[in-house]
């Protein structure tokens, strides 16, 4: 039963009620999906930029060789020389003098000690040279190597500031042991020792940084 209080407002012909009805064609949903796709692409692009590989290491100088370019046998030799350099520095800190090559051999510090691997590498004879504040431990092969090391001589340059440098010679730069010693003495006395050694055929080994982060 309709209440007597109910009122009805009838639209007159001069007044219109306009109701906009959006077409049910999915345009709103399409816009929403498009915006989501755009946002995902933007985030992905940003993440790609964030995870870009590190820039390549600076090019090596002439006469340098990166540790990553060494063969497995050469890397094993490099590890021994690196640890020997640290032993030499700790020795100096404790004894307040630099050790001789024979003292290092007596402590069985590779590659100075004479064992089966020493012989197969070339039976290197080691000498110690002190010039200025630099210490030079250098080697001369005495037998033919049975390993395919392609390293005839080695040079370990140690400074009192805690730094060291490893040098490899792939072919023998000198004809005799004494010639090598004289050349080394001369090189160590020049202002640019590095250039002198490189000119004589020595390769300076560059340890590459491979930190995880």
């Amino acid at each position: 039963m309709i209440s007597n209080n109910a009122t009805h407002q009838a639209a007159t012909p001069s007044e219109g009620v306009t109701v906009k009805v959006k077409p049910a064609n999915g345009s709103q949903e399409s816009l929403f999906v498009g915006l989501c796709i755009g946002a995902i692409l933007l985030i992905a692009a940003g993440a790609l930029l964030f995870f870009l590989p590190a820039p390549p290491a600076p090019a090596l100088l002439a006469g340098d060789i990166a540790s990553s370019q060494l063969s497995n046998g050469q890397k094993a030799l490099l590890t021994e020389l690196n640890t020997a350099a640290q032993d030499i520095q700790m020795w100096r800190q404790g004894e307040e003098r630099w050790p001789s090559a024979s003292e290092l051999a007596q402590e069985w510090i590779a590659p100075f000690n004479q064992d089966a691997s020493w012989r197969s590498r070339g039976g290197h004879q080691w000498q110690h040279l002190s010039r200025g504040d630099q210490q030079w431990y250098w080697s001369w092969p005495t037998v033919e190597s049975t390993q395919s090391l392609a390293v005839t001589s080695m040079l370990l340059q140690v400074s009192p500031q805690g730094e060291w440098r490893v040098w490899f010679a792939k072919s023998q730069p000198y004809s005799t042991l004494s010639a090598m010693e004289q050349a080394l003495i001369y090189a160590a006395s020049t202002p640019d020792v590095t250039a002198q050694l490189k000119a004589a055929g020595w390769l300076r080994v560059i340890n590459e940084d491979h930190r995880a982060h």
Partner: peptide, 21 residues
């Protein structure tokens, strides 16, 4: 380090006449 080197020294003493090739 001395302990590690002693291990290698012992091994090398046993291998002195052998050819690892």
């Amino acid at each position: 380090a001395k302990q590690m080197r002693a291990i290698k020294r012992q091994a090398m003493a046993e291998l002195v006449q052998l050819d690892t090739r």
